[in-house]
């Protein structure tokens, strides 16, 4: 993966900050931002959270821009869509194409939605870019989210990266042999790739079980509490 949020989450100035604090802060800020639905507050959140991500967590601005870029591109498109096709009320601008108009309502929808996402995205970024997933899952386990779900998620986590590595290698190998040369060959290559990964995943589920059993697994993942570092 070229853009690796997981890597950033493990290597920033806030990685070791209390995950409960980060999780609760994120959820609280998201709820407040949605509840207020105030344009000024949205801007305020965007600026404050961006400063925290860049200056406090010390995340490279390029990585942060990458985090924002994909949702933002999508956001702009959908907001233009909202602007042109939704709403009743007073017409405030006529595009002159196919009778498409901007109304007071549609402007309201588009602007508020745009700003709401703008205020919320950095909150998600704050959690996702500063906190390794495993820590969030451990929090959730202590917060009484069903254990079985957390255990499946924990076992999933490592496997995901093993598969992603394999896919990366296999895709390069297919590409080398012109596997993505045309539309139809792309499909066949992708199908072969995915089914191979699926068959491997079945083998992987067996070796995972062996690995767990070999070290005395009793059906439940034990929780390790690392020693607090003395300063």
């Amino acid at each position: 993966m070229k853009f690796d949020m997981d890597y950033i989450a493990h290597h920033n100035a806030l990685t070791e900050t209390n995950p409960y604090f980060k999780l609760f802060l994120t959820i609280l800020l998201l709820i407040v931002t949605l509840a207020l639905d105030n344009l000024y507050f949205d801007v305020f959140m965007f600026i404050v959270m961006s400063i925290i991500i860049l200056a406090v967590a010390k995340i490279n601005y390029k990585s942060y821009l990458k985090f924002l870029s994909l949702p933002m591109a999508f956001l702009v498109i959908t907001c233009i869509f909202l602007l042109l096709f939704f709403g009743k009320g007073e017409v405030i601008y006529e595009t002159g194409i196919l009778g498409i108009v901007v109304t007071t309502d549609s402007l309201h929808y588009a602007v508020y939605t745009f700003m709401r996402v703008l205020g919320c995205l950095p909150c998600l970024g704050f959690l996702a870019l500063t906190t390794p997933i495993a820590k969030i899952l451990n929090c959730l386990r202590n917060l009484k989210v069903p254990r079985i779900m957390i255990e499946i998620a924990l076992l999933m986590y490592n496997t995901i990266f093993i598969f992603l590595n394999e896919i990366d290698t296999m895709q390069k190998a297919q590409d080398t042999r012109l596997g993505y040369h045309s539309y139809w060959t792309s499909f066949k290559s992708l199908g072969a790739l995915v089914s191979t990964i699926f068959l491997r995943s079945l083998d992987k589920s067996e070796t995972l079980q062996f690995a767990l059993d070999s070290r005395g697994y009793n059906g439940e993942l034990p929780v390790y509490e690392p020693r607090k570092k003395e300063n």
Binding site: A153, M156, I160, L164, V194, S205, G219
Partner: peptide, 17 residues
């Protein structure tokens, strides 16, 4: 449990293609 976890990982990986 291992099978479900690995299948979930597969779903995630699939969605990243």
């Amino acid at each position: 449990k291992a099978l479900l976890a690995v299948s979930g990982a597969f779903m995630f990986v699939l969605s990243s293609l």
